[in-house]
């Protein structure tokens, strides 16, 4: 067989390149453009180099927002992943119950972000909200506008309620794809329930969990609408996450240069964490001895 080398084939990727340019490269380059300049008006601009980046990295407000952001993402991941797996394990596998439970579990995923915020805003009100009123009646001074703990707790519960179903659904589909023979072999090998989970179910869930964790990390790291509607970032700035700080800076104060620099840092953090996580998981599956 003679392979024909024809470099004209590269032309075939042009449409894709154009698409990616419009969807990703051009918007991103606009931000890069702003991040290295100080723009006063249409005709006046100064090249600032890395100045904005240095300034942003040293900004205490953003540093604390970043820490809060990591704390938030980690907390929700630590709750949602085990909880999602648990729910998936408990979901019925056949019959009408399976469909019914599937729909019930999926419902929170269908609600738009800001609506979720509004629902919980009302839900937690002390006068008319079931949760706010209920907790107060039980004797707990629940107030998300005053207490940092209440605000944080509520946002985390809200996010868990909204997004655990995603992990549960992914795991459910992963579990469904395990052939019956694996469970039968495990019974014959006298494996305990835990061993079945640890050595059969969990390994088969790895792929869906990688996707689930990555999606959830990116989502939660960029969370905006729900806390904005629910707490407005308060009390004080205790629930002001990165995206909200950024919006305030970019839209509220029109500090385009610093906010562009910060956007890029924000983007790189997400990229880096996702890449490290993905690489680590993929390496775990390789033979330790290099597959000899």
């Amino acid at each position: 067989m003679n392979k024909v080398y024809d470099n004209k084939a590269w032309l075939l990727i042009l449409p894709m390149l154009a698409l990616v340019a419009f969807s990703a490269i051009i918007p991103l380059m606009t931000v890069v453009n702003y991040s290295v300049q100080d723009v006063f008006d249409a005709n006046t601009r100064f090249f600032t180099g890395t100045e904005w980046f240095v300034q942003m990295l040293n900004d205490p407000t953003l540093q604390s927002a970043l820490l809060r952001q990591f704390a938030f993402s980690l907390t929700v991941l630590c709750i949602q992943v085990p909880l999602g797996i648990g729910i998936a394990l408990l979901m019925p596998k056949k019959g009408w119950q399976a469909s019914a439970v599937l729909i019930l579990v999926t419902l929170p995923l269908l609600i738009p972000w800001n609506v979720v915020g509004s629902i919980w805003q009302i839900f937690t009100r002390g006068d008319i909200g079931l949760m706010g009123w209920g907790l107060r009646e039980l004797g707990y001074e629940y107030n998300i506008t005053r207490s940092t703990v209440d605000a944080w707790g509520t946002i985390i519960i809200m996010d868990v309620w909204h997004w655990t179903p995603l992990i549960a659904l992914l795991c459910y589909s992963g579990l469904r794809s395990i052939p019956e023979a694996y469970y039968q072999a495990a019974r014959i090998d006298r494996a305990s329930r835990w061993a079945v989970f640890r050595y059969i179910q969990l390994p088969k869930l790895t792929n869906v969990l990688v996707i689930g964790v990555l999606l959830r990390f990116m989502h939660s790291f960029m969370i905006y609408a729900e806390p904005f509607v629910l707490t407005g970032g308060g009390p004080g700035s205790s629930t002001t996450f990165l995206s909200q700080s950024l919006t305030t800076m970019a839209i509220g104060q029109q500090d385009l240069g610093p906010s562009a620099a910060f956007s890029l840092i924000y983007f790189l953090i997400i990229l880096l964490v996702s890449w490290v996580f993905y690489t680590a998981i993929m390496n775990m599956q390789k033979d330790k001895e290099g597959g000899a």
């Binding site: 052939p179 023979a181 039968q184 072999a185 019974r187 014959i188 006298r190 050595y199 390994p203 088969k204």
Partner: peptide, 29 residues
């Protein structure tokens, strides 16, 4: 139950515990 009978079964499609080494697989039962 199968675990109480002294019987082993080999299935149509090979069943191995993916994340374990061959040694651990054999040692598992």
């Amino acid at each position: 139950a199968p675990e109480q009978r002294n019987i082993a079964q080999v299935f149509q499609f090979p069943v191995v515990y993916d994340t374990m080494t061959v040694f651990d697989n054999l040692a598992f039962p």
